[in-house]
Design a protein around this nucleic acid. Sequence first.
DNA 1: ATCCCCTGTTTCATTATTTGAACCACCGGT
DNA 2: ACCGGTGGTTCAAATAATGAAACAGGGGAT
Lengths: 257, 257
Amino acid sequence: MGTVSKALGLIELLRESGHPLGLSEIARLAGFDKATARRLLLELAANGYIEQDEDSRGYALGPALQMLGRARENRFPLNRAIQPAVRALAEQTGETVHATEYCAGSLASIFAVESGKANRVILEHGQKLPLHATASGYAFLAASTEAFVESVCRREFEAFTPTTPTDSKALMDIVTATRERGYSISNQSMEEGVSSVAAAIRGAGGKPVGTMAIAMPASRVTPEIVRAHGELVRKSAAQVSARLFGKSTVQPFRKAS
Amino acid sequence: MGTVSKALGLIELLRESGHPLGLSEIARLAGFDKATARRLLLELAANGYIEQDEDSRGYALGPALQMLGRARENRFPLNRAIQPAVRALAEQTGETVHATEYCAGSLASIFAVESGKANRVILEHGQKLPLHATASGYAFLAASTEAFVESVCRREFEAFTPTTPTDSKALMDIVTATRERGYSISNQSMEEGVSSVAAAIRGAGGKPVGTMAIAMPASRVTPEIVRAHGELVRKSAAQVSARLFGKSTVQPFRKAS
DNA sequence: ATCCCCTGTTTCATTATTTGAACCACCGGT
DNA sequence: ACCGGTGGTTCAAATAATGAAACAGGGGAT
């Protein structure tokens, strides 16, 4: 693994932690030597990606990340396109609705509206959903190229619950079924008691960039509700995709020919 | 310079560019070999910090930055605290008002409301303001420790206009005057025709974290206006600081003793 | 169609950077 | 005073980064 990835791993560590961490703790969590961790941290701090509190000596995420995040959002306003749709779905269904964006091999939760019901599904912000064990993952794979699906199949199949697909064949079947159905279904494949339906969001060129999903306690799930909510999320995702599609969200860096 | 900083420099390059860049162009701009640039870019892409468009082969800022930016904003909601104050000041003065945050050695513009007047000052988002040649910089230095001011004095004094302070002594005098006055004044020290007044925002522990500034065309500036607007920005910054101050925006990572 | 120039990509010997054990100084609790 | 923990520093050894060179492919101009 390259030095850069090690440094970025430290940032991820700080993000997951949610509160400042000390040098020793970071080194321990990352499996690096103290000296190594420190050198990387200082270099990140010099660039504003993290910052060290002078008093507590703790390291936390830095201001450069906000700057860059905003810059990215300016050129790829996925959030602005998705948020109204998520809110509308939450309103219609009364369940927890969330959106994810594909990022470095998994789907990261970028926005969620929680159900108002007492028994509801709660999603942490930034939580990473595996492609092989969630409704969002199935939907994303179903919208991806065969080559991408195969590359995911070659990875490990971590089993979270008894219903998590554990081999390439099972996953491929789910993907095929999702493609025919138009939306994906997860029956407690990631966490016991949580069922979801999801559909992919497509960006410029038709490539999937993320998903929208409705998550509900398994106790409220019936075949009719799955079908109704599934159709809702499919249509909503299609509408969002239509807005992103075509209008090249990423400007070409070559002159148009 | 470490490998990590080189990689992060590439990200900064992409941010400044504003649109996707090709490999050769990136290598040229950064002064790296094509092979080196490519290796760094691939590693960044693997972590989601940048992404490569499959078709055009161009590189652009990636989704991880949005994720991380949001995470940082959650724990340090500077924007939420500053935006209402900036809007209010813009309303009161009719001039362009903007806020900056300290990031890696300079002040980066994080929010701005433009004046409604025809002759107005315009600020690019993310623009970096040097500490030694802007009202925001003076205000930030005036709120900083002597050690920090001295470290800035040891840097190069790039002269942007004839009124840019060019040596340590001149800058120190400005900082001293700013401390006594309570707000800073820049008379076209960064760009001809633009004058500004500014005051520092202080965070937990009283340390400066950024600034608020009012920027106006030099043609509209009179001593009375400078004084009036200066007092406004001073008071407004103090109010924002009061909200951030004390309520430890960064949680301690040690147990409270 | 041919040439030319500019892409992106890969390789590999050279080089410079990263690594981590050992060490120091410091703090708080026992 | 001791101990266990912290953050920080050093330097020879090991490792990873580097970049010239060569390759493949595409587009434009002649």
